[in-house]
Amino acid sequence: MQNLFNTLNNFFLIGLPYIALTVFLVGSIWRYRSTKFKVSSLSSQFLEGRQLFWGSVPFHMGVLFLFFGHLIAFVIPRGVLAWNSHPVRLIVLEVTAFIFGIALLIGLANLVYRRVTNPRIAVVTSRMDYFLLTLLLVQVVTGLWVAYNFRWGSSWFSSVLTPYLWSIFALQPDLTAVSALPWVVKLHIVLAYLIVLLIPFTRLMHFLVVPLDYIWRPYQQVIWYWSRKEVRKAWTPWSLQRPKNN
C-alpha cells in the first residue's frame, strides 16, 4: 500500500510535471509553426454577445489575478511571506484572492451554461471544449475548497509548494513537504499540470499569442514585397532576393 502510494506520488508529482512541461513546450512550438492557421481565440461573441459578457469578463479577470498570484508566490515567496506577516494584510490578500476565485467560478459557470443551452454556440463547441470546461470547473472548485478549508493558502504555498516547484525546475525533485499535503491540494496540483499539458491541444493556445506588441506597434501597416529602393535597379539579383511576407 505504501509502495503504491509512493509510486503514485512519484508519478503525479514528479513524472507528470516533466511530461506536462515537455508536451507544452514542444507541442506549442509545433502547433504554432505547422498549423498556424488554427491558432485562434475562436471567439464566439459573434454568435451570442450578451451572456458572454457575464461569462468571459469575470472568468478572465479571475484567471489573470489568480494566475499572477500563484506566479508571484512562486517567484518571490519571501515577499509574499513578508506581506503576510501582518494579519490585516494577510486577510486583505486572502479575501481579495477569494473574491477573484468566486468571480472566476461565476464566469465559468456562465460560460458552461451558455455553451450548453445556446444552440448556435453548441455548433462551435468541440468535445475538447466540453472536456476543458469540466476540467477548469473542477480545478476552480478544488482551488476554492482548498483556499477555504486550509488557511492561509498564500502563506503555506510560499513555504511548502514553492520549494517543491523550484525543486522540479532545478531538476532535483523533492517531495518531502508535498507528499504530506491533503489529497484535495494534490488533486489541484495534478489538475494544474494537466491543464498545462493540454494547452497545445486546446483553445488555451490563445493565451500564448496575446497581442501585447500592439501597444508599441504603429497603427498602420504597409507591407512591400520587395525593397522599394532596389526594385527598379537593373543589377538587383532576383535569384538571391527573397520577398517579404511569405
Binding site: D213, Y214, I223, Y225
Partner: peptide
C-alpha cells in the same frame, strides 16, 4: 481595420 487589429494581421500592400 488595420489600425484596429491587435495581432497586426491586417496590412495594406505597398505595391
Amino acid at each position: 481595420c488595420v489600425a484596429g487589429c491587435p495581432s497586426g494581421a491586417i496590412y495594406k500592400r505597398g505595391e
